[in-house]
Amino acid sequence: MTDASLAAQGMTAHRSLWGDVWRQFRAHRGAMVGSAVFLFIVLGVTVGPYIHTVDPQYLNMRARNAGISWDHPFGTDNVGRDMLAQVMAGGRVSLAVGFAAMGVSIVIGALVGVLAGYIRRLDGPLMRLTDLFLALPILPLLLVILLLFRDTLRTLFGPEAGIFLLIVFVIGITSWMQTARIVRGEVLALKEREFVLAAKSIGTRGHRIITRHLLPNVLSPIMVSATIGIANAIITESALSFLGLGFPPDFPTWGRLLFDGKDFMTLTPERVIWPGLAISLTVLSVNFIGDGLRDALDPRIRGR
C-alpha cells in the first residue's frame, strides 16, 4: 500500500515508458526531420487530391508534355495528364502497398518467431523453413509469381484489386524472415526470465503467456523491423512496377510512373524526377524514423 500511495504522491513527476521513448525520439534530429517529411508525404497523398482537384486520368491533348506551370505544378505527360495529380494518386497506392505488405510480413514474422522461440518442438523445423526462405532469390521469384498468377487473380478480384492483393501477399510472404529471427532470439531469452516462471507457476496458459508477457516485451524490435519493412515494401513494389510487371498501365503507382516516364526522358526529364524523388524521400524518411526508433526503444541508450 505504501508503494501505491508514494506513487500517487509523485504523480506530477510521473514518467511513463512511452514518455521516455518519445523524449529520446525527439532528441534524434534525423528522426524528427524524417517524421515531418513522412507526415507531409502522407498528408500530401491523402489530402492533396482535395486541394489540387485535377483528375489524374483526364487527357488534355493541347497541354501535352507541358513544363512546370500554375495549372500543372509538376508538368504533364505525353497525353496531357497532370503529373502532380498522378504522383498523388500513385502515392496512395504505393503507401497502401507499403503498409499492407509490412502488416503481412510482421504478422507472419512475429508468429513464426514466437512459435519457434516458445515451443521447442517447432524450433528446428520453423528455423529451417526460415533459412530456406532466406536462400530464395527474392526478386526473380517475385517476378515469376506475378507473371504466373496475375491473370488468375485479375479474373477473381478485378484488375486492380487482384494485382494489389497479389503484390501485397508476395512481398509480405518473402520479407518476414528477419523479423522472425529477431523475435525468436528475444523470446528464447525472455522465456527463461523469472516473470515468465512466475506466470507459469500460477497456472497461466501458454497462449496467455505469449499474448500477455512475451509479445509486449518483443514489441520494440517488431516496431523497428516494421519501419524497415515499409521502406522495403515500397522499394520492392516500385521495382516490380518499374520492370513492367507490377500494376497495370493507367493505374499509377510511383514505380509505374517511372516506368512510363523513362521513355520520354530526353523530352520531359521531370516525369522521372518527381515520382523518383517521392519514392526516395519516403524511403529516406522512413529509414531515419527507424533509426530514431531503434535508439529510442533501446533502454541502454535511452538512459543517457
Binding site: G30, A231, I235, S238, A239, F242, G255, L258, K262, M265, T266, P269, V272, I273, G276, L277, I279, S280, V283, L284, N287, F288
Partner: peptide, 23 residues
Amino acid sequence: SMLGFSIPTFFTGLLLIVIFSVW
C-alpha cells in the same frame, strides 16, 4: 550512405542518365 541505401537503383540510374546523357 543513408541516401545510398534509401534511393533505389532504378532512380539513381535514371537520374544519372538525365544529368550525364540528356543534359
